[in-house]
Design a protein around this nucleic acid. Structure first.
Length: 871
RNA sequence: GCGCGCUUAGCUCAGUGGUAGAGCGGCUGCUUUACACGCAGUUGGUCGGAGGUUCAAAUCCUUCAGCGCGCACCA
């Protein structure tokens, strides 16, 4: 058995073990297995992406679930893969080609050639994030890695499109959509983020035809769209304006147009808010969704004044044409001023939709797009509402319900090249929806599908659908989905619908939503802020286990995480602590994998440790059932550090030092038994170090990954003995506190005296001395004149020749008495209240009495001691 | 505007009815038969405010405030 190094060095362990695990095929899932199935599909990261802390959190949680399931003897499939991420990838590649000076626009290359470049890019960079996940220790079945643009996957996407089209759920229409002028494509509603924008509210006047001197004042944030106005709307019940409905007004822009072209009707529409602005609304059906609806109601024409790149077109007039829409805004206001119809200009803040990817305001635009009416909505709604599929934390169900109750048809076409091309073919006025080309003379729709239109099939398309594969039979529906709540609509809800529509069943049993990771100042991590640490740097510094454990320990369920590198450092420190605990055990001789503490006489400390372990195990079950990962990490941390190291190992040192001790075999067996279990409990969180220790100590002959998850309720211990250990620990703590009052360190060879209430054995006293980190503890029969503290074992004295200062000791005792008196008073007050004493449950009253009694005893002891110094 | 979440020690957070906790930080000591990525001790909180329910409230209810997020066609 090679000796463990004094400090744990992850770099010597992690890569070696991971290679071993994957080369051996440890994570290959066998659909023919008789074992119960456990499955997860990875939320496929963007193929051009690199690992972020968010990925670390997300994938560590999946790995914890997968590794625990493996330990529980399940057949585990964790299915990995990547997403082609249409807009993001196309933008990255296009930008790179531009930077390299190869093109000015993708049109320079043409569709075929451009796509070749994207594929090349994908081949070169697409594997990066996968490699990074391996560094993290992710136990994915890499033999099943999928990509959303794989030929078989693409076939699924096309087939689903054709099917939904056949069912009449997919249709084409000229609609108002969210248009991104940078990417020059339509976006779905979900890809638009509302942002507050500081701008202006311009008030301008229009003359009413046939009513000399009658003007209407209109308030607008977008004067550049005035040339596209085709009506003016007022509320039909507005007493100020109702009489004007049916009349006409003159649109001021573009001024060079003849009046006949600028003459627009005044219409009455309930959409207009009388209280807002002036109560008069300009209507631009081509560039505003609400105005489009008004236009439909009143059969208004739509005049486009902004082109697909966000620039004003000739219809906007000679002064505006060619200008960017933002610049045109100021120019239009200027024009109004020159014409003398600008009444005022107020600063104004409103909500504006931004393109999620390009981070520019979206331009509502009329265009021909494909839309989907969501399928299987009833089942999808019900499965969550009924609690059959559970969300953790469950408050997300409300968000889901709300979205499902307000479904809008999904705009699924994108004017991009990188993605799944829409399987619709045209020849003249004919069109056909089918996967293969109908033949000569037919041309395919140039648009591609929204990336999410492929991701929503992920849980079954990755398992070989539409074939009835053994994988689907064994592993669908998947057990858990772990993802961020930010994609609940984009992905989770849609997957549920697709699952019902194509598998007749929900895609997963439970969904766990992680929190978002923020920096110490509470800001989201982002590349542009530069506050996003590279997980690989962290792995190099602290080890993958340290990173995983440190991050998980501070990741409360359902809340955002304030990330601080200090936490990762603590994860590493914990790994080292565990390492050294094992190292110390190793120094005492070989471990016994079959160790059974029940077969040996034991010290109270062993019993106490076993009792604590039993409590921990029962807790773990509960916490896993609720997906409380940070609490699990916290509980394991506390158990290893405080119970195993600080208490058990310290007391075990007596047995370790004395080979003739009758309790030595029991102590060793307890150490082995407990270590063997906690390594298994820690393995899902810290796969590398636990495997290394497991194998090196010889706690199992084979990998810890396939050892057995311990059964709870199997541990036997002596409760009285365990209680005795507790009093010993309490006695030692009191003694250390006493020593601390005198500023003495643990290295001073002190002699304590115990005026014992019980009859401690010489062995007990030696152990107490060990815990006190002192020279010795001896019993005495009379109270010496020395500092004292009452303990469960009796009064503990610390004779300090020469150091004793009666005034100081008096002060110390008085302070302790004050504290004890406060405790007694608190309980006494409760007991004295007749309502409390009569209505509270008897066991509570007993507890209060006990606390009062103990405080009382303490006070008596302390007062007696005080007398020694004051008389 | 509607909805959700958060507010507990200097910091990050546990704690869902019965003696306010952890880690970090600060301070004081310590090469003690594993571990300085360590050990011992210590400091530090009227649990955001106000009402209410209860024998008993950090915890349940109401309300207010601050912060964050989501949804929403007031130009």
């Amino acid at each position: 058995m090679p000796e463990l190094a004094p400090a744990y060095d992850p770099s010597k362990v992690e890569d070696r073990l991971y290679r071993q695990w994957t080369e051996r095929g440890d994570y290959r899932a066998n659909p023919a297995s008789a074992k119960p199935a456990f499955s997860i599909v990875i939320p496929p990261p963007n193929v051009t992406g690199i690992l972020t802390l968010g990925h670390v959190l997300n994938n560590t949680i999946q790995d914890i679930l997968a590794r625990r399931a493996r330990l529980q003897g399940k057949e585990v499939l964790w299915l990995p893969g990547t997403d082609h991420a249409g807009i993001a990838t196309q933008t990255v590649v296009e930008r790179t080609l531009k930077k390299e000076g190869k093109i000015k626009h993708r049109d320079d290359l043409g569709r075929e050639e451009f796509l070749k470049q994207v594929w090349q890019w994908k081949e070169k960079h697409g594997g990066i994030i996968i490699q990074q996940l391996k560094k993290l220790g992710a136990s994915c079945d890499w033999s099943r890695e999928r990509f959303t643009m794989d030929p078989s996957y693409s076939a699924c996407v096309q087939q689903v499109f054709v099917d939904l089209h056949k069912k009449g759920l997919i249709y084409r229409g000229r609609r108002m959509v969210n248009w991104c002028p940078v990417s020059r494509t339509a976006l779905s509603d979900e890809e638009v983020i509302m942002k507050e924008q500081k701008g202006h509210l311009w008030h301008f006047q229009v003359a009413v035809e046939g009513k000399k001197g009658r003007f209407l004042t209109i308030a607008t944030t977008r004067p550049e769209t005035i040339p596209g106005d085709t009506a003016i709307a007022v509320h039909p019940k507005d007493p100020r304006y109702a009489s004007l409905i049916g009349k006409f007004a003159l649109r001021p822009l573009p001024p060079e147009q003849p009046e006949t072209q600028r003459r627009i009707p005044i219409v009455g529409d309930e959409h207009v808010e009388m209280e807002f602005g002036t109560g008069v609304l300009k209507v631009t059906p081509a560039h505003d969704p609400a105005d489009f609806a008004i236009g439909q109601r009143h059969q208004l024409p739509a005049i486009e004044v902004i082109d697909e790149s966000g620039h004003m077109n000739p219809a906007a007039g000679e002064k505006l044409a060619g200008l960017d829409r933002i610049k045109a805004r100021a120019a239009a206001a200027e024009q109004l001023k020159e014409l003398g119809c600008l009444e005022k200009e107020d600063p104004y803040t409103n909500q504006v939709g931004y393109s999620e990817r390009a981070d520019v305001p979206v331009e509502p635009r009329l265009s021909e797009q494909w839309f989907l009416k969501y399928p299987s909505t009833e089942n999808s709604r019900k499965v969550v509402a009924s609690g059959e599929m559970r969300f953790f934390p469950d408050r997300w169900t409300k968000v889901y319900d709300h979205w499902m109750d307000n479904l809008q048809d999904w705009c699924i076409s994108r004017q991009l090249w990188w993605g799944h091309r829409i399987p619709v073919w045209y020849r003249g006025k004919e069109s056909r929806c089918q996967v293969e080309s109908p033949g000569e003379g037919w041309t395919q729709d140039p648009d591609v599908l929204d990336t999410w239109f492929s991701s929503w099939l992920w849980p079954f398309a990755t398992m070989g659908w539409p074939e009835k594969t053994p994988e689907l039979k064994k592993f669908y529906p998947t057990t858990d989905l772990v993802t961020g709540p930010d994609i609940i609509f984009f992905w989770v809800a849609r997957m549920i619908m697709a699952g019902f529509e194509y598998m007749g069943e929900r895609p997963f049993h439970n969904v766990y939503f992680t929190g978002l990771i923020r920096d110490a100042k509470g800001r989201k991590l982002s590349k542009s802020l530069g506050n996003s640490p590279d997980p690989l740097d962290l792995i190099a510094k602290y080890g993958a286990d340290g990173l995983r454990f440190g991050l998980l320990r501070i990741a409360p369920q359902g809340l955002d995480i304030r990330y601080d590198e200090k936490q990762i450092e603590e994860g590493r420190n914990f790994a080292n602590k565990l390492w050294n605990a094992c190292r110390f055990r190793q120094q005492q001789g070989p471990c016994d994998a079959q160790a059974d503490p029940a077969k040996h006489p034991r010290t109270p400390f062993s019993d106490h440790l076993l009792a604590e372990l039993d409590a921990l195990e029962k807790n773990l079950e509960k916490m896993y059932a609720n997906y409380e990962f940070s609490q699990i990490a916290q509980a394991l941390y506390g158990f290893v550090w405080d119970e195993f190291c600080a208490r058990f190992i310290e007391t075990a040192k007596a047995d370790f030092a004395n080979t003739a001790s009758p309790t030595r075999p029991g102590t060793l067996a307890t150490a082995d038994f407990v270590l063997s279990r906690i390594l298994r409990y820690l393995h899902p969180f810290m796969p590398f170090i636990t495997e290394e220790l497991w194998l090196t100590l010889g706690l199992g002959r084979e990998s810890i990954q396939f050892s057995k998850w311990p059964e709870t309720g199997q541990i036997r211990w002596d409760a009285i003995s365990s209680k005795n250990a507790e009093t010993c620990y309490a006695t030692a703590e009191a003694g250390r506190r006493l020593r601390g009052e005198f500023g003495l360190s643990g290295s001073s060879k002190l002699k304590y005296l115990l005026l014992a209430k019980t009859s401690p054995s010489p062995e007990d006293l030696r152990t107490l001395a060990k815990l006190l980190q002192s020279g010795s503890v001896e019993t005495c029969t009379r109270a010496p004149k020395a500092p004292m503290t009452p303990t469960p074992w009796g009064d503990l004295y610390l004779p300090l020749e020469g150091l004793l200062d009666p005034a100081k000791e008096t002060a110390r005792l008085e302070k302790e008495i004050t504290v004890a008196e406060a405790a007694r008073a608190r309980e006494a007050a409760k007991l004295a209240d007749p309502k409390m004493a009569s209505k509270a449950p008897p066991e509570k009253v007993e507890e209060w009495k006990r606390i009062e009694r103990e405080a009382d005893e303490k006070i008596v002891r302390l007062r007696e001691q005080l007398k020694l110094f004051t008389t």
